[in-house]
Structure formats: structure tokens, C-alpha cells
Amino acid sequence: MLKNMRYGSAHNGLNEWYLQRLSAVVIALFMPMAFALLLAVYDGSLDQMRLLNLLNSHIGRTLHTLFLLALLTHAYLGIKVLVEDYVHVVAWRVLLMGLILTTVAGLAVWWFAVIWAWGS
């Protein structure tokens, strides 16, 4: 008998699909700024003093925190879709997602530590 007829609906997917798009909009707002910042540093038009002035403020920190939350959420959900698409053994899928979730959480902690230590 057909799997999805037997198992019914898992009532998931919608929230992840929505969160993927919501985080995409947040990233679309912030990512060009972050990339412009890197390019400005790259071509020498932004020195360290002025960079720190930009980053080392409550606004700079808050925007970066929001940006990173959205970015990590979006990346996590994106990888999850890939794993669901291509990894068909449930045990591997669960293990892999656990590893990825842990990695993402670790990156988040590290990153926030960097952001909130600016200028100190």
C-alpha cells in the first residue's frame, strides 16, 4: 500500500516553508549591506577606525544579530530541504540533521560572541 496513504499527513512543511521565505526577506535587506561593507574594506575605502565606528554601536550590533539569525535559519532550512530531497534512509537523515543543527547552533554562539565583543 502507498506510504503516504497509510501515514496520512504529518502537518508540517508550511511553517518551514514560510520561515524560509521570511528569513529570505530579512537577508535580502541586510546581505547587500554586508557585501558592500566587505567590498569597501577590500578596495581600501574603509579603514579599521571607520569600520569599528560602524559596527561598534547598538544599532550595528542589533542589525548584525538579526542578520545572522536570519542567515543561519535560512541556511539550516535550505540544507534541510537538500537532505530531505536526496537522503532517503531515515536514520541517516535524522543523524545528519542533528549534526547540522548542532553546527549551526555552534556557529551562532561563536558569531554572537564576536559581534558583542566589538570594541572591547
Binding site: 503516504n4 496520512g8 499527513s9 504529518a10 502537518h11 508540517n12 512543511g13 508550511l14 518551514e16 516553508w17 530541504v81 530531505e84 530531497d85
Partner: peptide, 14 residues
């Protein structure tokens, strides 16, 4: 709609 709300039945569409 209840039946369709499922990460695999519907949301595999990319």
C-alpha cells in the same frame, strides 16, 4: 487542505 499539509506530499515542489 489538512491532507496536503505535509513536507513531502506538497512541499517537495521547488
Amino acid at each position: 487542505l489538512d491532507d496536503l499539509e505535509d513536507a513531502f506530499k506538497l512541499y517537495r515542489c521547488h
